[in-house]
Computed example of a mutant assay.
Amino acid sequence: MSNTVPKIISGSSIPRKIKEFTFPTTKELVDLYKVRATTYTLGPDLSDNFIMEIGAGPGTITKSILNRAIQYDNCKVSLVERDKRFVPIHEVMKECYPENAYQMVYNDILKWPDVENEIINHWNTLQPGYFNNANRVQVIGNLPFNIASPLIISMLRRMSHNEGFLGHPNVDLLLMFQRDVADRFHATPHNRVISRLTIVSQFVCESKIELKLKAGSFTPAPEVDAALVRFKKREKVLDERIEFEELEKVATYAFNNRRKTLTNNFKNIFKDTEKELKELNMNPKDRPEDYDTDKYCLLTRYIKDFYPKFMKAHINQLLQNKFKRPLEEIEI
């Protein structure tokens, strides 16, 4: 029996091309259920945990989170949603849970400092010093693919500086990305998916893919597959001698022209490019994808120490002049 819905055409207006809808397979339905019942990822004990869900929407995942949270002492939940069309659903949902079991925040998650301040002020008002005494901070989200990269960069930056509740020593992020982006976080050298995201995320966190999902697991189906990625904050960043922003700038500069050799990428930064790269145990003929985060930390320290003007310049200035003028000729 075919699992494709036949085309049904009625009336005088007949579109030239009708896209057929294909039912998800059994496996895809099971995978979708796993995401909707994603409480298995929260851990066995949620006592004194803080959980934040990004993009609560109609509450599909939210309800399973709350049903777990209310079973434990002092487990607090904040839900963030930008679209206020979901307010009526949230008002009904509120009647099903104890008072102050969770907080609803209507704001754009890309305005992270505002969202975070509202959350911290709310829980600290109800329970002074709440985040200082929390056992763990968890952030969960099925992110819109178009904001996933800038959002995770912003979160990683705050984690690296121990800012806000992401400064807590025990932080887990569990976020949905399109599959090709998810693969970048745990990429290794000599792999074409390695990128700036690889370098800066590994600087702050360890990560792994928890679940892979076909596009057909979602309705409406996106054009790409997805994956659920868990990030576990490191006790300290990989190299405390450099800042997150410095590493990000070097990685952005290198991967902006990822198919060019290191010599071509850095010839307008270094005075003697090949010699200096060799001193760093980097092959001048290699490409940016051939090195891991530790090596990028070393490269960043070197540039910071011997070419401080690079760190002072805006990244857009550096990229605009990358193959035009040497660093010393750039006005900052």
Rank of each mutant, 00 (worst) to 15 (best):
214 K>R: 12
189 P>N: 03
170 N>K: 11
319 L>S: 04
313 A>D: 08
206 E>M: 12
156 L>E: 06
180 D>R: 02
67 N>A: 09
313 A>Q: 14
68 R>M: 10
155 M>R: 02
223 E>T: 12
179 R>Q: 07
308 P>E: 10
147 I>A: 11
99 E>S: 14
330 I>T: 03
88 P>K: 02
284 P>F: 05
13 S>M: 14
282 M>V: 07
156 L>M: 14
313 A>H: 07
44 P>R: 11
93 M>H: 02
194 I>Y: 00
201 S>M: 02
60 T>E: 13
267 K>C: 05
93 M>Y: 00
49 N>G: 03
291 Y>S: 04
168 H>W: 07
74 N>W: 00
101 A>Y: 01
280 L>R: 08
247 L>N: 01
158 R>M: 11
214 K>T: 15
22 T>I: 14
235 E>G: 09
290 D>Y: 04
120 I>F: 00
76 K>R: 09
215 A>L: 02
273 T>R: 01
143 L>D: 13
101 A>I: 00
97 Y>I: 01
320 Q>L: 13
88 P>H: 01
267 K>W: 03
63 K>I: 13
135 N>Q: 13
175 L>G: 08
162 N>I: 14
271 K>W: 13
38 T>M: 14
316 N>I: 11
53 E>S: 05
86 F>S: 07
7 K>L: 05
56 A>V: 07
204 V>W: 01
259 R>K: 12
238 L>D: 11
223 E>H: 08
258 R>K: 15
20 E>Y: 06
111 K>M: 05
207 S>G: 04
77 V>E: 09
24 P>C: 04
74 N>S: 07
